[in-house]
Design a protein around this nucleic acid. Structure first.
Length: 937
RNA sequence: GCUCGGAUGGUGGAAUUGGUAGACACGUUGGACUUAAAAUCCAAUGACCAUUGCGGUCGUGCGGGUUCAAGUCCCGCUCCGAGUACCA
């Protein structure tokens, strides 16, 4: 019997799938354990060895928990709406659902080969109408809710309407648009229904509004902030500009404080929590009102440094500020208009890349300092952002570097208000250990005391108010795409009307083209059947919108993060046709116990999904306000790219060592064409790409040596390692163990195929404890004390290490264990059986096979995990290192039962010790039982 | 700039609470078996010095400190990575 991994793995994968071994049961005596992976987007390129890293880790936990007696939910699915399938559709005319299905099937095949213990009966696909029906349902729940600041939670919108009817909105404290008008009950009841609906949009948790959006002309769609990286689109790297559009948004800003505070109770990586904290960006400070000279208008500024109020020498408004038109003096009007026009032409990217240049213009107007009454010139400056705070800042050049630079550039005055500080060259922006001067009633105070005092004063005199600000913006929810969830809304005029939930799912219509219409409408504008008939309650042809009861449906679709913001709940009850989730399933599964995924979702998916969970919690649809108590970020497996070097402007390629002073262009080559000595296979490269047939390769020592660089694994960099190839050559169990062995799970690490033999040899070595030359070695004799000791040391180490997710050390422990048992020639059933159970989460097929060979009729999957027995590893003696002043000199074997005093006496009797001390008495003897003896002399 | 991580042999990495640094694996070298190769097994492998025999010195990015004892704790740097970026 050889270790025939191909045969074994196929056999057990079939066994597991026909027996539905990993089916999770909704009712069980056992405690539940929910292990979740971030579900993949099924791209056309298939999986590479980096993708399954997190899945392997979570699978080990899932299997370990099953052995430990838990009813484990370990589901998987596909985030199957998205841009690549749509772009492929645009190019080829093939329906995205077809591409998606093909890709999913390929993913499924690859995943199955690795022996994951997923419960595929619960699979979800975000593009499946049976799934997105509930995504649409959640959208309607958000549409029908508002955020009440008194209750500090979302409430149904009808409660708000009731209040409006009784008392208007004068006493309503709710999270709403800042331009929301005030009205009393009488006014409200007198409003036309359309006007009432428009006002309600200011309150709804998902709402339509005219917003400045990030428009990507190349993709023809709007992007959220987290979909933009360095001013260009995350996908494709296309430029992004600003555009005003009527868009759906999600009022996530209402939840900023709770999203921030609840982070404290989550067992998530600190770095990830920190990223979310920064993204939410809470800051404390004050809003201060500045009266404008000779005008009734006031300008509100937000500052985190109200203590520096006496350092104010000017004020700057964002170019988009509404008051600019009103306050600009006659003689400055042209200059201001020119400036604003110039800024408006700049794209976001230009504005971002050019932060060094200082630009601005004087409005000709002055504001009055609230305390001194002195006039302060009002400027307009590009560096002030309209989106943050009030879009206006007070300029304190002595305390803020940007204000300082601005003041210097335009020759504005600078007052120093910090004691003993030189502000002639740069601003002083530190807060600690400094006292204020030239600051009237704040003189002599430090930062903390001054802030407190000035806010009290501002509030007393009604010049301002202490306030809190967030960086977090509402999330734009409309996408001008085809391949996404339709938004269940139709329009009567410009009033959005929600579809009643009984008509869900609102299925994606068929279209002829997947591109925007000629008049610039989203792709759904191409659909013929895309109007809602209120009377017949069905989707009908758009030709009928002239009929009284037929109205156009929303043409935008939902963004990629919609479907992924709640899928973890659906797994608990994925086949339910009546509800998004039954109460029983929710009651039993509660929330995710371990969520495994990449940190790249920190400010996207992981924030949006927390937001939706909180809304659903407030509205009573779930009883967990956080859906994942523990989260682990697996690192990335990086590729080891290979480069050849083309002499600039030629077809000549220089081996790495010959580049010298030549100007060369590095070009990626397929890593499969490189041997372990970094030598390029010249024949193969010419077959690989025809372009190289004409090329001349200059060799060193008869070889072409490539350059190497560690980068992200990607098809375009030709550094992809396909897991199928590894499975063919070494088997899935080797791949699983090797990926765990590469390093700590949360770390990025480069893939290196060369190292895999170590793990593969381990499995073969272990196999040889069972079989050699077709001969079974396993005996039922009672094992030696040494082998029992090896076993129990292993049990302890593995149990501890799995609990703390240190899988790389687990693999090492197994290797040590098998090396020792090999040395001991131990093939006792009593020892080998528990090791199979220990190892089975890592190498499941391998262990199942041997488990069966040992005569067990049932699968290994639910065997109880072996329990550590300390008595088996107990030692009576131990070698203690004896050191003098911390330096180790010799070892001494002593009984473990000795007390500290006995050990001291025994050590002092040692001849060598006495030699060391040479007559002088030791100052101190330190004994840590079981660890160390140190003699201070 | 700010925030958060890192830095240990030729390489990936161990060292869980301050207690024999370098486990385990790759790679390299030498050996056994073999006609040969593969496979397998054995030995050596941080650096330097001493090796006929023990052995010794230095070593966890750099400079200090605390301690009988520091990869681990404290202070000050350097470099690398990630996130974020006119956020007032």
């Amino acid at each position: 019997m050889d270790y025939n991994f191909l045969k074994i793995e196929k056999k057990w994968q079939n066994f597991w799938s026909t027996h539905k071994t990993f089916k999770a049961h909704d009712q069980s005596e056992k405690s539940k354990y929910y292990v979740l992976d971030m579900f993949p987007y099924p791209s056309g390129a298939g999986l590479h060895v980096g993708h399954p890293l997190g899945y392997i880790a979570s699978d080990i936990i899932a299997r370990f928990k099953r052995h430990s007696g838990f009813n484990v939910l370990h589901p998987q699915g596909f985030d199957s709406f998205g841009l690549p399938a749509e772009q492929y559709a645009i190019q080829t005319g093939q329906h995205p659902s077809k591409t998606t299905t093909t890709n999913i099937n390929r993913y499924r095949q690859q995943l199955d080969r690795m022996g994951f213990s997923f419960d595929w009966d619960r699979e979800v696909r975000t593009s499946d109408p049976n799934y997105y029906r509930w995504t649409q349902w959640i959208f309607l729940k958000l549409f029908d809710a508002y955020y009440d600041l008194q209750a500090n939670k979302a409430l149904p919108i009808f409660e708000l309407i009731n209040r409006f009817e009784k008392e208007g909105n004068l006493n309503v404290q709710a999270h709403c648009d800042k331009d929301t008008p005030l009205f009393d009950a009488h006014q409200w009841n007198a409003y036309e229904s359309d006007k009432q609906q428009k006002i309600l949009l200011f309150y709804r948790l998902t709402y339509l509004s005219e917003t400045q959006v990030n428009w990507c002309p190349a993709l023809g769609t709007v992007l959220a902030n987290d979909e933009i990286v360095n001013g260009v689109s995350e996908r494709g790297g296309h430029p992004v500009t600003k555009k005003k559009m009527r868009q759906w948004s999600m009022r996530i800003s209402a939840y900023a404080d709770r999203l921030l505070n609840d982070l404290d109770e989550l067992d998530w990586p600190d770095s990830l929590k920190e990223m979310q904290r920064n993204w939410i960006g809470k800051s404390r400070g004050a809003s201060i009102y500045f009266q404008i000279e000779n005008s009734s208008e006031t300008i509100k500024v937000y500052t985190t440094r109200p203590d520096t109020i006496f350092g104010v020498t000017f004020m700057t408004l964002a170019p988009e500020h509404q008051l600019i038109k009103k306050i600009t003096s006659v003689d400055q009007q042209k200059a201001v208009a020119d400036y604003i026009a110039r800024i408006a032409h700049k794209s976001d990217r230009e504005r971002q890349s050019d932060v060094k240049t200082i630009s601005g213009v004087f409005t000709g107007a002055y504001a009055l300092h609230p305390f001194t009454g002195l006039p302060i010139p009002i400027w307009i400056g590009e560096y002030v952002l309209s989106g943050y705070g009030t879009g206006a800042v007070m300029g304190v050049p002595c305390g803020d570097q940007r204000d300082f630079d601005f003041a210097n550039h335009f020759n504005l005055s600078i007052i120093n208000i910090f004691d003993g500080v030189d502000v002639s060259k740069a601003a002083f922006s530190e807060k600690e250990n400094i006292k204020l001067i030239h600051s009237d009633f704040l003189n002599g105070l430090d930062y903390k005391a001054a802030v407190e005092k000035v806010i009290a004063e501002l509030e007393l005199k009604n010049y301002g108010i202490g306030s809190v600000n967030f960086r977090l913006r509402d999330a734009v929810f409309s996408r001008q795409r085809y391949w996404g969830e339709p938004i269940p809304i139709y329009f009567k005029g410009d009033i959005p009307v929600p579809l009643n939930e009984q008509y869900l799912p609102l299925k994606l219509p068929e279209v002829e083209k997947y591109i925007p219409t000629e008049d610039g409408k989203p792709p759904l504008g191409n659909a013929k059947e895309w109007a809602w008939d209120e009377i017949n309650e069905e989707v009908v042809s758009i030709d009928r919108i002239d009929y009284r009861s037929v109205f156009p449906l929303e043409l935008n679709t939902m963004p990629g993060w919609a479907g992924s913001s709640w899928y973890f709940n659906r797994y608990m009850d994925s086949q339910n046709q009546m509800q998004w989730l039954s109460d029983d399933a929710m009651e039993y599964w509660k929330e995710v116990d371990l969520y495994m995924g990449g940190s790249e979702h920190a400010t996207g998916h992981l924030l949006y999904s927390r937001f939706w969970q909180k809304v659903l919690f407030d509205l009573g649809y779930t009883n967990s306000k956080e859906y994942a108590k523990k989260l682990v970020n697996q690192g990335m497996i990086l590729g080891n790219s290979a480069f050849i070097y083309r002499k600039k402007g030629t077809l000549t390629f220089l081996s790495k060592g010959l580049i010298g002073k030549y100007e060369v262009e590095p070009i990626h080559v397929e890593v499969g064409l490189i041997n372990s000595q970094d030598e390029l296979d010249l024949e193969a490269v010419k077959i690989w790409q025809k372009d190289f047939q004409q090329a001349e390769f200059i060799l060193e020592n008869g070889k072409y040596i490539v350059g190497r660089e560690v980068e992200k694994m990607s098809k375009s960099k030709y550094n992809v390692i396909n897991p199928d190839e590894i499975c063919d050559k070494y088997g899935a169990d080797t791949l699983r163990m090797y990926e765990m062995f590469l390093g700590p799970i949360e770390q990025d690490k480069p893939w290196n195929t060369a190292g895999i033999s170590g793990v593969h040899n381990f499995l073969k070595k272990f196999w040889r404890l069972f079989y050699q030359n077709d001969h079974c070695l396993v005996t039922e004799d009672s094992p030696s004390a040494e082998s029992m000791k090896v076993l129990h040391q292993t049990i302890k180490k593995i149990t501890d290490d799995i609990e703390r997710l240190s899988f790389n050390t687990c693999v090492s422990t197994f290797m040590i264990c098998i090396n020792e048992l090999t040395t001991l020639k131990c093939s006792n059933k009593t020892v080998l059986e528990p090791i199979l159970i220990l190892l089975s989460p890592f190498a499941p097929h391998f262990c199942e096979e041997l488990w069966q060979q040992l005569g067990h009729p049932k699968s290994i999957e639910f065997e109880p995990f072996p329990v550590f027995d300390p008595s088996k590893v107990e030692e009576t003696t131990k070698e203690y290192p004896v050191s003098f002043n911390g330096k180790m000199r010799f070892k001494i074997k002593l009984s473990l039962e000795m007390g500290v005093e006995e050990i001291k006496q025994a050590v002092m009797k040692e001849q060598r010790t006495l030699d060391q001390i040479q007559g002088s008495r030791p100052k101190k003897i330190i004994v840590v039982p079981g660890k160390i003896i140190n003699i201070v002399i």
